[in-house]
């Protein structure tokens, strides 16, 4: 019995996009397709101030209905898993909110319930977070400036898989990098897989040059998910099978 699948894109980058369409616009589109976009901006360990270009990080995440965080490479592991979990809870809470509104009327959100009642609703959200299936597409900026950070990114992704695979629900991960090889916007690093244990040395040789096609890469990433077939409320209808095949 499949309860439905949460879909997320996790964008890891250290700078601003400079080629192609506006990534925030693509993120908005992704959200409309039921895909949440989370963004993590990675700082150099010595960097003390937020460099220019990283404001985009927040903008993309807000448009994509997800979370954003700007962190030092060192604390990447914990941030990656926290952002992913928070976004899951948020999406599921949104689903439950919708359901509440259906039952109780327009203004009934979790926050509008008295504190005593919220507890039960949160339990439902937590249950769903534990048991739902999850697809995470990781989109990694591999432009030259990311060079030193890629080993840390790999560690963080391995760590993410460790966290998520402790859940009861199933997970699928895939990794894409941008800019891609031979002038393409994006390359596939790893196809959908339940575990990220085999990611050591999967990142391609770094692409030099100053091109960062975040928008087009995001669009490509979005297309790797199966098209939306039903709305998110399917999470709550346990009897219906909601298998969603995404073409591998």
């Amino acid at each position: 019995m499949n309860k439905g699948t949460l879909k997320q894109i996790l964008l890891i980058t250290d700078g601003c996009s400079n080629k192609g369409e506006d990534p925030a616009a693509v993120a908005t589109l992704a959200l409309q397709q039921g895909i949440t976009v989370n963004v993590i901006g990675v700082l150099e360990n010595e960097q003390s101030e937020q460099p220019e270009g990283l404001e985009e990080v927040e903008e993309i995440a807000m448009s994509g209905g997800g979370y954003s965080q700007v962190v030092y490479a060192k604390s990447l592991s914990q941030t990656v898993q926290m952002v992913t979990r928070q976004a899951m809870t948020q999406t599921l809470q949104g689903v439950v909110n919708q359901e509440l509104q259906q039952i109780l009327g327009q203004d009934q959100k979790i926050e509008e319930l008295p504190p005593e009642k919220r507890g039960e609703v949160m339990e439902v959200v937590e249950d769903l977070g534990e048991t739902c299936d999850l697809e995470v597409l990781v989109l990694v900026d591999t432009s030259a400036s990311m060079h030193n950070k890629l080993p840390t990114v790999q560690d963080a992704l391995f760590d993410l898989s460790l966290s998520l695979n402790a859940r009861t629900g199933n997970n699928r991960f895939s990794i894409y990098s941008f800019p891609g090889k031979r002038g393409k916007d994006v390359s596939k690093v790893m196809d959908w897989t339940p575990q990220l244990e085999s990611i050591s040395s999967v990142f391609p040789k770094l692409t030099s040059g100053g091109i960062t096609p975040t928008g087009p890469a995001l669009r490509e990433a979005m297309n790797q998910f199966a098209p939306k077939k039903r709305n998110l409320r399917s999470f709550l209808s346990r009897d219906e099978s909601t298998m969603e095949e995404s073409g591998d």
Binding site: T89, G119, M122, E123, E126
Partner: peptide
């Protein structure tokens, strides 16, 4: 983040 308060209270 109201949800984390609710969870802890639970």
């Amino acid at each position: 983040n109201g949800s984390s308060i609710t969870t802890e209270v639970n």
